[in-house]
Design a protein around this nucleic acid. Structure first.
Lengths: 192, 192
DNA sequence: ACTCTAACGGAGGCACCCCTCCGGTTCAAC
DNA sequence: GTTGAACCGGAGGGGTGCCTCCGTTAGAGT
């Protein structure tokens, strides 16, 4: 994958330092931050993130001068992966392509929820990510609608928020989550 | 309402002190806590709650020795109101009764989400509240199922979590939230 | 009115977090 | 190898929150 079809993918790459040790630390910080945000939400301690990454707090601040910078980068990274996933499912049946992408979307929501708390919805990066994501996933819904397997009176934003909400909730087990999600998607599906 | 059909309702009353000033402070603390939890989630500062209530931090700790005590009381209070709401809608059409109760449930979710973060799911109070709530709302779903207007292959827990998830999410506006919730409930409804 | 006990509020000790600054270290280019 | 620029880690100052403790206040019963 040499081309980058979505502008967001540039964000992570552009920040990444060139020196070997610096790049390693940068990656470790991103991984640690993703974990910490998933675990503690937006309130995650930056010092804890640095500790997890096995790096001094100074190194964290050099790479990400503000808490916001760290958020944005983690978020963009995640969106990027999601966009790539949309390409991968494109060859399946319309309904199946849509639902399996939504499944991948579930994982991304963990990070998303933390970012929602911290990032302004009007933030440039947030809007760029949104755009990328709609460009990647939107066609999947449109295809299903044209094939007559998804109701026409809703848009991609409605669908995303529905799935987002459901997957962000705590369930007794994965089976229950899948069951509930399936019921909700039954409301989206047409022709049985 | 002299009788208390749900055990949870005892919790708040039993803690409330008898002296006039003490009772006033207790109420102020509960109100302030409810606001703070809705605003900041489980991480809300106890000192801030005391400040909002116009009360010293010592008073907060005397009434609620641990953060958990405060959570439990606020939560039980909310559940209690929800149980009473179930009685109020009982005389409507099955589907209408169910959906209007779910609407009331939406408001309660704001507190609930904060409590989820802080309280162990296995906590005694948490389980008692759960039981009270199921006892209050469960029959509404059962009635709809018996009337043939709700699908039979789901239980009350599934429904609650679905609604909980959707209403906890941020939407562009209330119209969108209602639209999405309606679509999801279409997956629940049967016979059109 | 008087008493005495329950309740009050906030000072203070401890812990944690944020962020800056700088002496020491390591990479990479020559 | 040498060198210097880039990078490293963490000490430290300022801020906030948690919780305890205790001198002061005010309600309730007589």
């Amino acid at each position: 994958m040499t081309a980058t079809p979505f502008p967001v993918s540039e964000i992570v790459a552009s920040r990444r330092p060139h020196r070997k040790d610096a790049a390693r630390n940068y990656d470790a910080l991103l991984t640690a931050a993703r974990e910490a945000f998933a675990e503690h939400g937006a309130e995650a301690s930056l010092e804890d993130i640095a500790r997890r990454a096995g790096v001094g707090i100074g190194t964290l601040y050099r790479n990400f001068p503000t808490r916001r910078d760290l958020f944005e980068t983690v978020y963009a990274d995640e969106v990027n992966a999601l966009c790539r996933a949309a390409v991968e499912v494109a060859d399946r049946e319309p309904w199946q392509a849509l639902t399996s992408w939504l499944n991948r979307f579930t994982g991304y929501m963990v990070t998303k929820r933390a970012v929602r708390e911290a990032l302004d919805d009007e933030s440039d990066i947030f809007m760029a990510c949104r755009e990328s994501m709609y460009a990647a996933g939107g066609p999947l819904l449109e295809r299903a609608q044209k094939a007559g397997v998804a109701r026409a009176d809703m848009d991609f934003g409605d669908l995303l928020r529905m799935v987002a909400g459901i997957t962000a909730t705590a369930f007794e087990d994965d089976a229950q989550r899948d069951r509930v999600l399936a019921i909700a998607l039954d409301g989206v599906r047409t022709g049985r």
